[in-house]
Design a protein around this nucleic acid. Structure first.
Length: 489
RNA sequence: GCGGAAGUAGCUCAAUUGGUAGAGCGAUAGCCUUCCAAGCUAUAGGUCGCGAGUUCGAGACUCGUCUUCCGCUCCA
């Protein structure tokens, strides 16, 4: 356990040291639970995102991608339940440090009153609570708690903090003109990308002439005000999701749920994530919108945690949006029933796959990172830190290294670089000994190095060196590009 | 938010009882040319997290503050 913790700090340090991830606004001491991706991190993140996008849209002809705005009409979040379900007032007991939802605390006291036969007091308490809650009168609620001498079950004291509201969503002001009422201008930064897909369901279905079943994919930033946000990029306030909502005929949702459940696990394995580090975790307690839900969990250095969620969301979202927008969000199914007539209108059911891009990034890095030590043939110790990132998503695909920086070797190397850089990301380096340069490429996860030496000038061959095995072999200079193209696809 | 620990160069860490900051690695430039880090030379880089106080004098002592890490609390 201590070892794993250690390993995790090593990974975090490595990410910073080699341009993968920096704490946000670091020169100002950072901003809690916000991180920036550096030169190598941004490239890796983009490669993962592209890989996902391609596997969703290009490899499934019935899935298309969109890019909806982060700002959405405020009613969106009323419809989704985010406004009402996730902004409960909370209160802490100063002695036990235990935190309660204010309504839960008062309700459990009311139950106690009922148990004692004090029906009238119970009724009065609940009535005043509802009134105060609807007015957001936190001072009044605290008075109510104090008047009723409601105590913490753990500490047994009535030593309470002030009531505070924890909002899941970030809000900001919309429009440059200021109305008298702040609420009029209030918009939220989306806490999930899914709603951008739901509100565009009809636009995409009609303009793309999509037939059910079909999917809409999207990647993008989302924002959540987590109460506690730690564990590096695992839980951030600003993060990126990769979501696909799959619209199906009601009654067929379990079939598709199971399809995506296996499909998504296979996809993660295709990224080189070992099967034994992945597992399903079925939700027993379901969210208000779902009739089935499973997480794909990955064994992070700090334990098995959610990487991707697959939810059968029923017709909850479309139905809600239909109700609040007063627009019909239905699909006319022209497939024929047994009686020869079309099936007709219905609100589709939705199966969602939703993976955190940052979590996937951390997964890839966790799997890739290795601090290796071994004994050389002459008996001395040797070591290296290597990121075994799969070639298809590695930031740099190839490093081109002249063995020495004279005798015309850099010229040959640069010519090769010009030939390759249109096709894939290459890195050129002529400083320091060749071994040191190999180590540097290991540390940032470059899968292949090609070294130009004096023999190159004689027979047009170069050494290709493999990051994972440290093996090397001679190949033709002319074939470098085509060999690389083959290896990274 | 609470409790504990820690903040000195890019990284890892030093600096005797308070006397105006050092090393290794790394980086940069040059030398050497050698297919798996740790050869030679030179250079750069720190108002010791920030603010105040005590003192002739503070990296060190006191208070405050910020940040990070660990634990608890919360998490659709």
């Amino acid at each position: 356990m201590a070892n794993e913790q250690n390993n995790f700090s090593e990974i975090i340090a490595h990410c910073k040291e080699y341009g993968y991830i920096f704490p946000s606004s670091e020169i100002y001491d950072g901003l809690s639970a916000v991180y920036d991706y550096g030169q190598n991190g941004a490239q890796l993140k983009k490669n993962i995102r592209d890989y996902w996008w391609k596997s969703m849209t290009q490899l499934h002809e019935n899935i298309v991608g969109i890019d909806a705005a982060i700002f959405m009409h405020p009613l969106t979040w009323k419809a989704s339940g985010h406004v009402d379900n996730f902004s409960d007032p909370m209160i802490d007991n100063k002695d036990s440090k235990k935190r309660y939802r204010v309504d839960h605390l008062i309700e459990s006291h009311a139950e106690k009153l009922a148990f004692e036969g004090k029906k009238e007091e119970e009724f009065a308490l609940l009535k005043s609570m509802d009134e105060l809650l609807s007015k957001d009168d936190f001072g009044g609620l605290k008075n109510l708690i104090e008047q009723n001498k409601i105590k913490c079950e753990v500490s047994g004291t009535a030593n309470w903090t002030d009531i505070r509201q924890f909002n899941l969503m970030f809000s900001t002001e919309f429009g440059s003109s200021v109305s008298g009422n702040e609420e009029d201008n209030k918009v939220y930064l989306r806490p999930e990308t899914a709603q951008g897909i739901f509100v565009n369901f009809l636009n995409v279905q009609k303009t793309g002439r999509m037939k059910i079943p079909f999917g809409i994919a999207q990647t993008g930033k989302a924002f959540r005000n987590e109460i506690v946000a730690r564990q590096f990029i695992f839980r951030m306030r600003e993060f990126e999701q990769m979501e696909m909502q799959f619209f199906v005929k009601p009654g067929t949702e379990m079939e598709w749920y199971n399809y995506w459940k296996t499909e998504r696990l296979k996809w993660h394995e295709s990224l080189g994530i070992p099967a034994e580090k992945l597992r399903y975790h079925d939700h027993v307690k379901l969210a208000h919108y779902a009739n089935a839900a499973v997480d794909i969990e990955f064994e992070f250095p700090f334990g098995f945690k959610e990487l991707e969620g697959i939810h059968s969301r029923t017709d909850f979202d479309l139905k809600q949006h239909q109700e609040l927008s007063k627009k019909k969000l239905q699909y006319f199914d022209n497939d024929l029933k047994e009686d020869g007539k079309p099936i007709g209108n219905y609100i589709p059911y939705v199966v969602e796959t939703s993976v955190g891009l940052d979590r996937l990034f951390l997964t890839v890095i966790s799997v890739a990172y290795a601090n290796e030590k071994w004994t050389k043939e002459d008996g001395t110790e040797d070591s290296r830190v290597v990121l075994r990132i799969p070639a298809k998503i590695a930031p740099y695909k190839l490093a081109i290294l002249p063995l020495v920086k004279k005798d015309g070797l850099p010229e040959i190397a640069k010519q090769l670089m010009n030939e390759c850089k249109q096709s894939f990301h290459t890195f050129y380096e002529e400083k320091d000994s060749i071994g040191k340069r190999y180590r540097r490429m290991d540390a940032i996860g470059t899968p292949f190095c090609v070294t130009i030496d004096h023999q190159t000038k004689e027979d047009n061959t170069v050494t290709i060196r493999y990051r994972d095995t440290m093996m090397q072999e001679r190949i033709s200079l002319a074939e470098v590009k085509s060999i690389l193209m083959e290896k990274i696809n």
